[in-house]
Design a binder for these strands. Structure first.
Lengths: 328, 328
DNA sequence: GTTCGCGTTGTTAGCGTTCACATCACGCGT
DNA sequence: ACGCGTGATGTGAACGCTAACAACGCGAAC
């Protein structure tokens, strides 16, 4: 412990502390002597004791949902990188299902651990609602979350992304665009539906019935079977790339040529999309940027005790055009 | 803090502590009074102070590489679930590149935070080597790691998995099986090559030249182009599903029918594989089991101060046969 | 009726840091 | 020669909890 180092260096424990914290008022020679003692003893400061007195753990909590999926995994990755770069640890709680109680528990759990702040990746309405009753006093930022509660949010502009693909398809001359959506509880699913609807109505087209899936390739496959059997479908916007893969599979089985007979577009731009058959037109989300941004926002709140203003940061999506879409 | 609760409940702080720690010798009535005071005040104990005196943080560290990939992400997810179920927090460090220095830094970083134990997801030889010089005194378990250092390991039996696919292909009557491998620094890549070689040589066949990739769909695509141009290739075992997707894409472009002319098999069974065109024969790895098992091993080491024996746990892989492989 | 044991509760002393303040040496202005 | 400011260092307390032990009351056993 610190006292040992102090003894070996012939100084007081406080001086050792000063060296460790880069306090200016330490003579260069003393500093060297202390440093020397530190690595002679292989001393490593005890951050727990430090956290006790400073009341800062330099740990951030992250609550996320199924970090097995590409989106959340990438976001969490971005968060972790940014946090570590800023000298913070990241403690993760990954929920199986996001319901209000689950989120509450996770937040409590993290609060107990005395994290300095929390990032909640809350893509579901139910999760967003749980943010209404937060443990008091801990800064929180929501990623991909809704407007619930008194919390700043960072997210990719889903509406805009959906609008981009839909307009792309309409621009190719398709009379209308069908949509396979995500589960209705998800804010992202909702945003994509909104953008799709908006683009259609701006073009004076009527929105066809929405087919809905659960993000999984299988649900896309099932939607694809239905679409293949329908008349006059020439363009489909699928709410994520995994489901789009399922759609493509169903079309392949049914002998529906893509993009020959039906154009298909996805959302996310997972690494695989470029190699689907055919390569998938999709919307790229910069998850890393979202992660970075959320940490920025959170740290600003933590480090400056500034007057709190609720903000909503939006990261722009990017349309990636590949071979799965073509003129009508 | 605890004193407030004690005052409100009319007991000493120590009794509050006892209630919080489920100490047996507290009168039922007292316990109730204390509990009552606790949630009347919204009191939450300070785990930092607790950790300082108990010298256990109930936090585990996880060092992983690119948690964006399906395998690591799933493993980390399994680890987190298991750890939380056991009442431990999980602090994650996700490395961009795994070199010895990077792993060392991560371990140091976690050691400073006073984690009770560390799981290193160390699928690369260089990472495994870094385990040789660990911060002393902290229990460590390596996942997918090699035999380096004095560390227990938990992993899926790569050799066996590769053997299973290769035998499956040979059993279908293919004269030999080509292989697209992962990067040579990866232990998993090596294990898969080994199993493939073993199966071939057991069947008295010669192993063709290995094409090597970097796990990415693109590298699989490039290998696929090469294979498509070669004579007499009828079966290919690709070291992961993402690269297999690339291979399938290349074959589709070159007009090589799968499995008509060439059978293709992968490794991992990512959720997408079932919906590739054609659905991919592959080897399923139970990442969740690996995660759970590694926590079991680690906690046993932490909680019982038993004599330390190095162990290597192996989780069996499972062959999943789909439409991408057929008789020669 | 005294003693013993046991269940329950209280008291005190740290855990290893940092913070606030005290101290000391030294140089400078007057 | 004196006081005073300033930079370098030391001292004691505090952070909020648990461990160890002490103390107390009460029923059983002699």
């Amino acid at each position: 412990m610190m006292a040992d180092v102090a003894r070996l260096a012939g100084v007081s424990h406080q001086t050792v502390s000063r060296v460790l914290n880069d306090h200016p008022n330490v003579r260069a020679e003393t500093r060297i002597r202390v440093m020397d003692a530190i690595d002679r003893l292989g001393y490593r400061r005890n951050l727990v004791a430090r956290a006790l007195v400073t009341r800062h753990s330099r740990t951030l909590g992250v609550v996320s949902f199924d970090t097995t999926l590409y989106g959340p995994a990438s976001t969490v990755y971005g968060i972790e990188q940014a946090a570590r770069a800023a000298g913070y640890f990241v403690s993760i709680v990954s929920l199986k299902s996001i319901d209000r109680a689950g989120v509450r528990d996770a937040l409590d759990y993290l609060a107990e651990q005395a994290v300095d702040g929390i990032v909640v990746v809350a893509p579901q309405r139910s999760a967003a609602r749980a943010l209404a009753d937060l443990p008091a006093g801990i800064p929180v930022v929501a990623v991909e979350g809704g407007e619930a509660g008194d919390v700043s949010t960072v997210s990719v502009d889903q509406v805009e992304g959906a609008r981009l693909v839909t307009e792309h398809l309409l621009g190719l001359g398709h009379g209308t665009v069908w949509h396979v959506s995500g589960p209705s509880d998800w804010l992202e699913a909702e945003g994509r539906i909104q953008g799709w609807r908006a683009a259609l109505s701006d073009a004076g087209r009527e929105a066809p019935e929405v087919l809905s899936g659960d993000w999984s390739p299988r649900s896309g496959y099932e939607a694809g079977r239905r679409l293949a059997g329908m008349e006059g479908v020439t363009a489909v916007f699928v709410a994520n790339d995994q489901m789009a893969l399922g759609v493509l599979r169903a079309f392949a089985e049914e002998g529906v040529r893509v993009p020959g007979r039906i154009s298909v577009a996805g959302f996310d731009d997972i690494p695989e999309s470029e190699f689907f058959s055919p390569p998938l037109t999709t919307v790229r989300q910069d998850f890393a940027a979202v992660g970075r941004r959320s940490i920025e926002v959170l740290l600003r709140r933590i480090e400056t005790r500034e007057q709190w203003v609720r903000e909503a940061f939006v990261v722009p999506p990017e349309l990636v055009i590949r071979a799965s879409t073509s003129p009508a």
